[in-house]
Design a protein around this nucleic acid. Sequence first.
RNA 1: GGAGAGGUGCCGGAGUGGUCGAACGGGCUCGUCUCGAAAAUGAGUGUGCCCUUACGGGUACCGUGGGUUCGAAUCCCACCCUCUCCGCCA
Length: 472
Amino acid sequence: MIDIALIREKPEWVKEQLQKLNDAAAIPRIDAIGRLDQQRRELLAEGERIQANRNKLNKSVGRLRGDKKLDDAARLAVAASAAAAIESGDLDGALALLTGATPPNGGAPAADALDRLSGALGELANRVEAINGEVKTVESQLDDEMLWIPNLPHESVPVFPSEEDNIAWEPEGEFRAFDFEPKPHWELGPALNLIDFERGVKIAGSRGYVLRGDGARLQRSLIAFLLDMARAKGFTEFYLPYMVRDDSLIGAGQFPKFRDVVYHDADADVYMLPTAEVALTSMHRDEIFDAAQLPIYYVAHTPCFRREKLSAGRDVRGIKRVHQFEKVEMYKFTTPETSYAELEALVEASSAVCRALKIPFRRLEIVTGDLGFSASKKYDLEMWAPGSQEWLEVSSCSNTEAFQARRANLKYRAEGQKKPQFVHTLNGSALGVPRTLIAILENYQQADGSVAVPEVLQPYLGGQTTIRAPEA
RNA sequence: GGAGAGGUGCCGGAGUGGUCGAACGGGCUCGUCUCGAAAAUGAGUGUGCCCUUACGGGUACCGUGGGUUCGAAUCCCACCCUCUCCGCCA
């Protein structure tokens, strides 16, 4: 969520930002939010004004009823005058009467004066309730609109319309020179009996896949290696729930916009985790940190489940785009002052993993048109896959600034400051597992059809250096 | 799945329908005392929202949502969650 004060104070500027994001659908919402916000505040002011008077009057009535010093006639006289004052809208006058500041004005002290007073106060309660009802309606409309507004880009993000314009940095690492035609992983995997697509589809349907033998072991090793890399950099490792409630998805920015990519168990009303980021964002929901606790670094390996409609004919082969995959995700809670330095460090941490695996990769600076919903600034890392002949996105590192913090109510108290303020949150993959697996297979394949094991993974595979096809 | 207990502030723990944002204790912060510390002692110590340049004022919040009432932490209803015992189970 962005700060509504921005919309209140400079709506045109906000619209310009949305224009850069290519989110034309969000733009008309800004005016709607402006109207709702104003409406809300007007209603609140009116409702609270009456309520403040009502609170005072109610207390005074309690005292009037219990006041031993007044005889019945006097009590009725006060009640009658006060009731008349309330009915005519003079709440201050009524209060003065009830507290004895002004004497009753001598109206007929009817026997039912106390009931009439109660009735008048009840009427006041009804008015407040009616206004509060309107406030509620307006607020829920307002919240709903706000949840659809994407995060705004940081000023350093290059302004271009589409992912075609993302800025690729100079690749790092050595591109291998092959003296044979490198195969894509969808050929290598089955040939080495590491990946079984037919059985996967048999079990799970479209896009199902099975890793087998050294394929499964390689994945397991990779995950352990990735977690160890993060842990060495000070990240605390977590095991997390894979099924989450909708508040968690709203907090991380998945809902309401991306509802259709998340699997849902309607009976239990829980959702399957699309990324660990969702669970990690919610870890400290509704908490207030001390400044001294920040920054906080977390890392977790989880499966990710994505229902996205996988378009026919695109990325259909292999395990590049699937409904279920493993990912190791890093997450940071920081102060606003340090979040951009922390973003650089985060990308560096992911880059270090690519270097350690000795696979050529490059950094992509994401432009405004491709920023997505939650990020203020984002970098992707891509590994080169010589068999598929393409760059594979293996990591995506974002600073969401206070966008998720506002949705999930994540705050901290700055040194010497009374008011808590929102933290900044960052997330980055380290790395996406199937794509890294693809890159390993395709980069480490050898002329005889076998695949060498990256040096850093060998200890995790009991010293094994090569993956070969099993004996026929 | 069966039976029971309970959800109040940073924590523990009170709370006759009106003066309760909430006793009391602990913690924490600032101060006094001290060479310093401990002990003792004084004051303070929630969050959101609205109004206000500011000082400050108002309002809401005692699991959530409804209801009763002039007035609800306190009464009624529904729901959620936690815990204990039994059963089942990796």
